[in-house]
């Protein structure tokens, strides 16, 4: 009797856990397949690589290009700065009150809503620096937004480098800086790479920070300078799915597919890179 009852409640618990887990994951997979099925028919080279004379006619080269340029510039700004910040935290900072303040700040920065970053970018870059709504303003905003993610991942990969390697280098008469750049960074490289890819995916998919800083509803040509506005893939999807533009559903799904494919593809790359980084580090200890 006892045994049966215990087994029954256990079984019910297992069942519930399983059901809720399934609800968490199955829709995601269904969704990806659905988007692929709906978007693929419209997808061809012409759709991807032509500039549309109007919103309805398809041809997403302009938003694709805009997203690419914005992402690259944001990374060029954010990656070196974040790396230096992570180096400070991992290799130089004493673990004192200030360190914890910085740590807490980074956690908080990571939690600041992206639309607030948008307001910040509008206030600082667009208005105060007078960049206007432009690629440079958008990229700087995105760079600020990706700092906490980048610093965190970089910091973790630097910390994962075994202490014994630093000791060996220092004991050979290398300075702290030389140790950092010649031993620690090369060893942490794949982890650092992972962080960069993760940030790439994040920047490419974000919309709210670019609303007020760079995004153009429609442009018949590619941007020519950093002070131009640009169309962006994520904002483009927002525009065509909320405004009554007469854009066909097929085309919307195709844009969604491109955006999802881009972001998920980059993410899978990051996951693969991280697996490699883990292997490398575990072979060291």
């Amino acid at each position: 009797m006892m045994f049966r009852r215990v087994a029954m409640t256990d079984l019910v618990a297992y069942g519930l856990i399983l059901v809720f887990t399934a609800i968490s994951f199955v829709p995601l997979m269904a969704l990806v397949f659905f988007i692929i099925a709906k978007g693929l028919p419209r997808l061809d080279l012409d759709f991807l690589f032509s500039i549309s004379p109007s919103l309805e006619s398809g041809g997403i080269l302009a938003p694709l290009f805009g997203t690419l340029v914005l992402t690259v510039i944001a990374l060029v700004i954010a990656v070196p700065i974040s790396l230096l910040a992570a180096i400070y935290l991992s290799e130089y900072a004493r673990k004192d009150r200030w360190f914890h303040l910085i740590e807490l700040t980074i956690v908080n920065l990571a939690g600041v809503p992206s639309v607030v970053y948008g307001l910040f970018g509008l206030g600082l870059f667009v208005i105060f620096f007078g960049f206007g709504k432009s690629i440079i303003a958008g990229a700087l905003t995105m760079a600020c937004m990706s700092l906490p993610l980048l610093i965190t991942v970089f910091y973790q990969s630097l910390r994962a480098v075994p202490m014994t390697l630093r000791e060996a280098s220092l004991a050979l008469g290398a300075s702290r800086l030389a140790t950092t750049f010649r031993v620690v960074l090369p060893t942490a490289l794949s982890g650092i790479f992972t962080g960069v890819i993760l940030a790439t995916a994040r920047i490419a998919g974000e919309t709210a920070p670019v609303l007020f800083t760079v995004a153009a509803y429609y442009m018949p040509n590619l941007p020519e300078s950093l002070s131009d506005q640009a169309m962006l893939l994520s904002y483009h999807l927002y525009a065509i799915s909320t405004q009554n533009t007469g854009v066909s559903d097929e085309q919307k799904y195709a844009v969604t597919l491109v955006l999802v494919g881009l972001v998920l593809g980059i993410n899978l790359l990051a996951i693969a890179a991280r697996a490699k980084a883990k292997n490398k580090i575990s072979s060291l200890v």
Partner: peptide, 14 residues
């Protein structure tokens, strides 16, 4: 550089 050190576990650089 004048006073070098060898550690308990071999720790060659990668």
């Amino acid at each position: 550089r004048r006073i070098g050190m060898v550690f308990q576990r071999p720790n060659p650089f990668p």
